[in-house]
């Protein structure tokens, strides 16, 4: 595979595509949201159990490409146990990572942990929506909006 593609399809992304974390239903959910990417037919259902502003549990179901599935998987790992405010903050960081021109230092990237694997996405405009679908859906769930999330 060529090097540019390796930047996009990092090993951690391929791994989470094969074996996503937190995949499955969450019957005790307190918040739910559905996200769709009409262009590729991807859809994602997100369920969270929030207690005292803390995301105690989060799970997802649905189908999508490797980028969107891995992104959902890593997002659930990243926000589990965090407060809603911290999750919002992570959303902002992730958004900047995949959409802005802003340079990220090695330090900043290492602070983002596994999420840094998506740094290559910004070079693939057609794939930015795949990477952000889970995060937009999270925003939707945290802000109690009833409209399904899209990345349009």
């Amino acid at each position: 595979m060529n090097d540019e593609l390796r930047e996009l399809y990092q090993e951690v992304i391929l791994d989470h595509n094969r074996r996503p974390s937190n995949f499955g239903p969450l019957p005790q959910a307190t918040e739910r949201a559905v996200g769709r990417n009409p262009l590729c037919g991807d859809h994602l259902s997100l369920a969270l159990r929030i207690n005292n502003e803390v995301i105690e549990e989060v799970r997802f179901e649905g189908q999508g490409c490797a980028i969107s599935k891995a992104s959902a998987s890593l997002m659930t790992e990243a926000v589990q146990g965090k407060t809603v405010a911290e999750a919002n903050c992570l959303f902002e960081q992730f958004h900047a990572l995949v959409t802005s021109q802003q340079e990220f230092s090695e330090d900043e990237l290492s602070q983002m942990g596994k999420l840094a694997a998506f740094a290559g996405v910004r070079d693939y405009p057609a794939r930015v929506k795949c990477a952000s679908l889970a995060w937009h859906t999270l925003q939707q769930a945290l802000h109690h909006s009833s409209e399904p999330a899209t990345t349009e």
Partner: peptide, 8 residues
């Protein structure tokens, strides 16, 4: 997923 096939 077809989308990944397309990019590759």
């Amino acid at each position: 997923h077809p989308h990944d096939v397309g990019t590759m």
